[in-house]
């Protein structure tokens, strides 16, 4: 005992075995099924895109922390890895590699580290990176390689539209929903994930699998994903019910685009979502509503990334107004 003096610290003297790093790697594990689907659907380009995005995020985090901020480098905590994977999941396969790097720089450099690093960022870094790319390079960002047809070579990429893109375009040209839906993939196809779109948006099944894993491991709570999807479903259902010839049905809205990816993996980002369950529900309703508004009335076919970023900005406000109920504040003594 003399060589190693006893430790004195304040209680508690035990700690649960959950650590931030374990949480992060649980998220990575949850993303594996969707990643495998994307590689199956898009082939090597999907792999290249993901690896590039991850590498860009890790390298930028390392360089900025080491040489610009001169703080301890935290690339091992897994958060930059997740940002990289999520960024890739939000990009079309076959996008020029330098654009991915730019996206990584925006995600890590601007959205994360300039706010102070993990835990201090207001906006979801991957979302910020994607939106930056989307508004800067709209053409390349919406050049969707068609699923399963060109998974061997990058050169002959045949491109097609995403289901949401088809609907938006069709509606603009005055087509009715029944005409558009003839060219849409079936709900089952969308559920399994063989349509056009970003890497990670492919298979609802794979995403739900990963999402279920996260909820079971208690990395995320069910409140945000369920509420986001429910809000989208309810709102689109109302419009569809009012005018089924003009608006797509809720099933299409849930299964297509980034709804599930966003609801389970982006909106639930611990740092940029509210801390209380009540706040989470409010936050998720906001995301769902904004997504629907952008999808139905905005210029872009897909809106969940904008919706998440907008609601991210409201998180501090939500945290201020949706507090847990304090013990003992319910009633004045219930006397007998």
């Amino acid at each position: 005992m003399s060589d190693a003096p006893i430790i004195v610290s304040a209680s508690p003297h035990v700690h649960s075995d959950r650590t931030s790093r374990k949480l992060m790697y649980d998220v990575v594990i949850a993303l594996v099924p969707a990643f495998l689907v994307s590689v199956y659907v898009f082939g090597i380009p999907a792999l290249i895109t993901t690896v590039t995005a991850v590498a860009a995020c890790l390298i930028f985090e390392y360089l900025i922390q080491k040489y610009l901020m001169k703080v301890p480098v935290t690339i091992a905590d897994g958060s930059a890895l997740i940002t990289g994977i999520l960024l890739a999941f939000n990009l079309p396969a076959g996008i020029p590699l330098w654009m991915i790097a730019v996206g990584g720089l925006v995600a890590i450099g601007i959205a994360k580290l300039s706010f102070g690093g993990l835990g201090y960022n207001v906006f979801n870094p991957a979302m910020a990176g994607r939106v930056f790319l989307l508004v800067s390079f709209p053409v390349q960002m919406t050049l969707w390689p068609t699923a399963l047809e060109n998974n061997t070579s990058l050169v002959d990429a045949i491109t097609g539209a995403t289901p949401l893109g088809m609907i938006k375009e069709g509606v603009q040209y005055g087509q009715s929903m029944s005409e558009i839906s003839a060219s849409l993939p079936s709900a089952l196809e969308m559920f399994l994930g063989v349509t056009g779109g970003s890497l990670g948006e492919m298979s609802a099944l794979a995403l739900l699998l990963g999402g279920a894993y996260l909820i079971i491991r208690r990395v995320i709570s069910w409140h945000i994903p369920v509420t986001v999807l429910a809000t989208i479903a309810v709102m689109t259902a109302i419009f569809w019910w009012l005018d089924p010839e003009h608006y797509a049905n809720p099933l299409i809205h849930i299964l297509s685009g980034g709804a599930i990816l966003g609801a389970f993996y982006m909106a639930t980002d611990l740092v940029t979502s509210p801390v209380t369950k009540k706040g989470m529900v409010v936050f998720a309703v906001g995301i769902g509503a904004l997504t629907v508004v952008i999808r139905l009335f905005g210029a872009y076919p897909e809106g969940i990334s904008f919706a998440i970023l907008i609601m991210n900005a409201f998180v501090p406000l939500i945290n201020t107004y949706f507090k847990p109920r304090r013990f003992g504040s319910r009633i004045k003594a219930k006397m007998l």
Partner: peptide, 8 residues
């Protein structure tokens, strides 16, 4: 001399 180590 230090006889204990403080953590916190």
């Amino acid at each position: 001399p230090k006889t204990t180590v403080y953590q916190g």
